[in-house]
Design a protein around this nucleic acid. Sequence first.
RNA 1: CGGGAUGUAGCGUAGCCCGGUUAUCGCGCCUGGUUUGGGACCAGGAGGUCGCAAGUUCGAAUCUUGCCAUCCCGACCA
Length: 492
Amino acid sequence: MSKELTTRAADYSQWYNDLVIKGGLADYSAVRGCMVIKPYGYALWENMRDQLDKRFKETGHVNAYFPLFVPKSLFEAEEKNAEGFAKECAVVTHYRLKTDPDNKGKLIVDPEAKLEEELVVRPTSEAIIWNTYKGWIQSYRDLPLLINQWANVVRWEMRTRLFLRTAEFLWQEGHTAHATKAEAIEETEKMLDVYAEFVEEYMAVPVIKGIKTPNERFAGAEETYCIEAMMQDGKALQAGTSHFLGQNFAKAFDVQFMNKENKLEYVWATSWGVSTRLIGALIMAHSDDQGLIMPPKIAPLQVVIVPIYKGADSKPVIDEKVATIMAELKALGIRAKYDDNDNARPGWKFAEHELKGVPVRIAMGMRDLENNVVELARRDTKEKQTVPLDGLAGLVQNLLEEIQQNIYNRALAFRADHTSEANSWEEFVDLLDNKTGFVSAHWDGTAETEDAIKDKTKATIRCIPLNNKQEAGVCILSGKPSTQRVLFARAY
RNA sequence: CGGGAUGUAGCGUAGCCCGGUUAUCGCGCCUGGUUUGGGACCAGGAGGUCGCAAGUUCGAAUCUUGCCAUCCCGACCA
């Protein structure tokens, strides 16, 4: 079969790629490091985007759109931010092509059409946005400014992976300006909560909320908050970040406001983002060797109905019954499809919908029709049951909720199983190598130790969990005193 | 970007070492028929710049060089 998947045990990376490609989420493109998001994958993204967008708006944000290009002089204004991204920027240097005089039918960059100032293709939009905010903010009455944009960004990565790290990706980036430090920090934390709630409740992926160490901090931020998720191979994935930017960008772009006391002050900033990388997290957190497993709340398709018929006579009878079921499902807002394509037989359809991760499948044949029942199958456990037609829609609705909860619980249990405490270096290394997952251990708080641990084990500090328990201990590597444990893991 | 591997029809592949008729097989696709409760069967058919570009040769899927892409390991990666 061309649709055969690599198993997780055989080759986890290949399994992941197979799911993305064969599950119809995305395809490789003609551009290095860039992918085509196919309709099924995009439908998933749209569902995720719609939920997030709703929450952003509920928390007082509005959407806007800023340019793809950032003049180099603006880009370099905030030094740390510029430095952090410099190595992965695509840069536009010319604005015209012309026909090659030496090679008919080919085009060359017109050397006459060199831009006076290079344009950086945004790897993130702080620079262009803060340059704009300068003109929008004069008074405390203009604050807070709470803006989000849905956009694409480009980061010229050396090594790319479908959804997890592509040269171009889709995301949202919130950029807010506040009158006080406290309010900006509150915003940073609020948006982290929005992310955590969305990822847990809709994507059914449990996350750890925490803050990054200075080493792992966003370039130009005072503090980076993050949510960290765990994949089925025990590796961590940063699922979203929310940054408290202090006054760094306000100072770099000279954004000041007049406060109530008629004094000029620099504004306080935040930025926060999640990307199509979340789709990678979704895949690796839930799916199995048969294919994708979509959380019902954001699944492009929640229910698929497969007719089983012998001869042309029975099909119209089934069609009629299914039309009723479809109407009932749609009345409850359930995304359902009647897969009556005659080219494929039922067994093929079952396998295909399992590959695509459709949460619930309903099969209906004459046998069922006579007994007024259908076969109801759930993707997460592969369990099948025969249920009466009466009250089917309600039952399906409950089942969708149960599946959502079940895959969350499953991921949570996996994470619990793969979260350990290490109290010695030997134990630490052993856990990372053999148990994988998060390892909670004491760290002396220095960047040197953090780097040394990374060099020796490839594990990084994923975060210092919020509201972390304070306890005296000694650093796993240096033996120096420590006041708290931090979460280590190998990560994507 | 460094090391390794791979690239032959939509997918998976044989052939490559040791150059030589019309590039192998399976799945998928098209037509017709029979089918349909876990990836159907029969018959007929279409589909190939052998990743791309140069080179060596009378002759290149096969040898050489460069490039591109994917995977693995590293570096890098907010």
